[in-house]
Design a binder for these strands. Structure first.
Lengths: 120, 120
DNA sequence: TTCGTATATGACTATATCGCCGTATAGCAA
DNA sequence: TTGCTATACGGCGATATAGTCATATACGAA
């Protein structure tokens, strides 16, 4: 892997950091939270209602997103308002969505003509 | 979550697909494989030597990358040559690296002056 | 202070998967 | 065919974590 570092210029630590960031984005619940926050700040209770998930889980996943510095928060009385602090995540999701769309289209194009007409 | 779909236009299935793609990128070994392939096609044995990992593990991770359509392969006699089939992954990694760099710089700037001089 | 609400945290179970080992398969040579 | 090499595959142990419950903490009201 020393050989790899010479090639890529990235040491094992940097690779691990990148992997961890992708890991944070690799959970559907966390992605849904980010999507919900895309339209503006929301407090924990709003997210619990919007995603109909348990409060404890939402809070825990918000903690992960916050530790990764993808969201930030501010207290407002009893509530805590969360908001996106890293707009880059939308570019990331957009790139991935584009790839998934291309893959789906390629699958359709690869289908034999008769079934291509029937499916979906 | 029906509410969420109305807001974001993404249903639960699409979110799961995006999450899975991030999950594929969330393993250091797979990232290292992609980095190694950035300079051109390599066969399994080359990757085993470059990353000094076990052949079984490299092969398994290549299977995951191939299933996700991030790499493609072609047989060449006894060997199988793998190569990047989705250049988008470099944009993804670049965005993440930029974010990590900004975070690191912010941490340095937030350090009290005396220790800022000492650390790293 | 005490009470009620909003959020965070600790412990737990269930599930997933990384990396390893052993072995199976694919292809070439003889 | 047999033998050799490169790669893929199935099972296993160890580790990690999502989601849940119960509880703790933070804040405001009275």
């Amino acid at each position: 892997m020393e050989k790899l570092r010479q090639i890529t210029g990235l040491d094992a630590g940097a690779v691990a950091d990148v992997a961890h960031m992708f890991d944070v984005l690799a959970e559907p619940t966390r992605l849904q939270i980010l999507q919900a926050l895309a339209n503006g700040p929301l407090c924990v209770g709003d997210l619990v209602a919007t995603l109909d998930a348990k409060q404890a889980n939402i809070s825990k996943q918000l903690g992960v997103l916050h530790a990764a510095k993808l969201v930030d928060r501010e207290r407002d009385g009893l509530q805590v308002r969360y908001f996106i602090s890293e707009p880059m995540i939308f570019e990331l999701c957009s790139l991935v969505c584009g790839k998934l769309r291309r893959d789906a289209e390629a699958r359709v194009a690869a289908m034999p003509a008769p079934s291509r007409a029937r499916k979906r």
